Simulated scan of single mutants.
Amino acid sequence: MALVALASAKGSPGVTTASLVFGALWPRQVLLAECDPAGSDVAIRMTGPGGAPLNSDRGLVSLAAASRKGLGDEVILAHSQQLDGGLDVMLGVRSPEQVGGMGGLWHPLGISFNQMQHGDVLADCGRIGASSPQLPVVQSARLIVLVCTATGSSVAHLRERLSSLVHHVDAQLGVVVVADPRRRDGVKQVWSVLDAMSVTVRHRWHLAFDPAGAAFFDGRGQGRLDKTQLIRSATDIVGEMAALVATPEQHEFDMAQAAFPQHEEWGQ
Rank of each mutant, 00 (worst) to 15 (best):
L244K: 12
T235S: 13
A243H: 12
D254A: 07
Q257G: 05
E249P: 00
V245H: 01
A242G: 10
A243Q: 14
A214W: 03
A212L: 12
Q222G: 09
V238C: 09
F253H: 13
L225F: 11
I231A: 02
R232E: 11
G239H: 05
D226E: 13
G239R: 13
A215E: 11
V238P: 00
E240C: 07
M241Q: 08
F216H: 10
L207H: 00
V238H: 00
R220T: 00
T235W: 04
V245S: 04
A214T: 02
Q257R: 15
F216A: 04
A212F: 04
H206Y: 08
A258S: 14
H206N: 08
E249L: 14
G239D: 08
A215R: 09
P211R: 09
A234I: 09
A215S: 15
G213E: 00
T247E: 14
E240V: 13
A246E: 15
E252I: 07
Q250T: 15
A246Q: 14
L207W: 01
R220K: 14
K227I: 00
Q222P: 00
G213C: 06
L244E: 01
A246H: 10
L244T: 07
F209W: 15
R224P: 00
R220G: 03
R220F: 08
P211S: 06
R224D: 14
I231Q: 08
G223P: 11
V238L: 03
V245Y: 07
M255L: 14
E240G: 05
I231Y: 07
A242Q: 09
Q250A: 13
A256R: 12
A212R: 15
L225M: 14
F253W: 13
A212N: 10
A246T: 10
D236K: 14
A234N: 05
L230V: 08
R232L: 12
G221K: 09
F217S: 02
D254C: 11
V245P: 01
G239V: 05
L230E: 06
F216C: 05
A258P: 03
T247S: 12
R224N: 11
R224K: 13
